[in-house]
Every structure is written in C-alpha cells, then in structure tokens.
Computed example of a mutant assay.
Amino acid sequence: MEMASLLSLQEENQLLQQELSRVEDLLAQSRAERDELDIKYNVVSERSDSGQMASQSVQEAGLGLITDLRLAESRTEAALEKQAQLEEQLQDKMLHEKDLAQQQMQSDLDEADLSATWVPGGCCIRQASLQKSDRAGPGSGASSEAESGEGSGQQGPHREA
C-alpha cells in the first residue's frame, strides 16, 4: 500500500503541478491583458485630455469670436447712428442754404423791381440802387426817391405814362 499511496501522491502531485502551471499561465495572461488595457486606457485618457483641452480651446476661441462679433456689432451700430446724425445735419444745412438762397433771390428781385423806374416816354431806367442800399444797409430806409420812383414824377413799372 505504500506503493499505491506513493503513486497516488505522485499522481496528485503531478495533477497539482499541472494545475499550478495552468493557473500561472492564466495569471501571466491576465497580467498581460491588464497591462494592455492599462496602455489602452492611458491612450484613451490622453486623447480625452487633449480632446478636452481642444474642446476647451475651441470653447475659448468661440467665446473670443462672440466677444469680437459683439464689439463689431456695437461699433457698426455706433457708426450707423453717427452716419444718420451727419445725414440729418447735412439735410438741415442744405435746407438752410436753400432758404438763404431763396431769400437772397427774393431780395435781389425786390431790389430789381425798385431800381427799375419808368419815365414818361415809356423807357425803363435802371439806377444803381444795389450799391446805395448796400452802403446804407438793409432796412435802413435810406433809399432815394429816385430808386422808389416817388417824388420825381416817375411812375412804377406797372403804370403807363
């Protein structure tokens, strides 16, 4: 029986050795897979970190662009308001100049009517009323009787002799 017991122990020892070898192989395979997974995890993590950094950079760039766009819109709006003000000022100035020109033309026509006098022969005589009225100043009443046609026997432009 010792022999059977010895054989049984050797056989059991051999089975245990095989099992140990198989478990060691599985352990080595497991470690290799773990190392491989660690490497893959690190690669993915680095990509994720760089992706997050890229995403953060894109976000910051986007915010910068939005800020620049808002600033440009603000400047454009201010420029449009300034342009509208300048156009309004120009239009007001043009209307004022037009009014002044019309007043000057009416004044010149009024003075031309006063300076043209009719003499009894139906002849029209123009006098230098503009020079006299310019020296006397507007509204001074310093125009002569000859300019107005009064007191000299001359009649106005619409009357016949």
Rank of each mutant, 00 (worst) to 15 (best):
Q29A: 06
S30H: 05
R31F: 03
R31G: 04
R31P: 00
A32D: 07
E33P: 01
E33I: 04
E33C: 06
R34T: 07
R34Q: 12
D35L: 05
D35M: 04
D35F: 01
E36S: 13
L37I: 07
L37H: 07
I39G: 09
I39D: 11
I39P: 02
I39S: 13
K40A: 07
K40D: 04
Y41E: 08
Y41C: 12
N42L: 12
N42T: 09
N42F: 07
N42D: 11
N42C: 08
N42G: 04
N42K: 15
V43L: 15
V43M: 13
V43E: 15
E46L: 14
R47F: 05
R47A: 08
S48I: 10
S48C: 13
D49N: 15
D49T: 15
D49R: 14
S50E: 15
G51I: 02
G51H: 04
Q52Y: 14
Q52H: 14
M53C: 10
M53V: 11
A54S: 11
S55W: 12
Q56Y: 08
S57A: 14
S57T: 13
V58E: 15
V58H: 15
Q59R: 14
Q59C: 06
Q59D: 09
E60H: 05
E60W: 01
E60K: 05
E60G: 05
E60V: 06
E60R: 06
A61C: 06
A61Q: 11
A61Y: 06
G62L: 08
G62F: 03
L63S: 15
L63N: 12
G64V: 05
G64Q: 10
L65H: 11
L65K: 13
L65Q: 15
I66E: 12
I66W: 08
I66N: 09
I66L: 13
T67I: 08
T67P: 02
T67C: 14
D68W: 03
L69R: 06
L69Q: 06
R70W: 05
L71K: 14
E73L: 11
S74V: 06
R75K: 12
T76Q: 10
T76I: 13
T76L: 14
E77K: 08
A78F: 00
A79H: 01
A79C: 04
A79V: 00
A79G: 01
A79L: 02
E81N: 02
K82T: 00
K82A: 02
K82E: 00
K82Y: 01
Q83H: 03
Q83K: 04
Q83N: 05
A84P: 00
A84S: 02
A84N: 01
Q85R: 02
L86Q: 01
E87Q: 02
E88T: 03
E88N: 04
E88I: 02
Q89W: 01
Q89R: 03
L90E: 06
L90V: 05
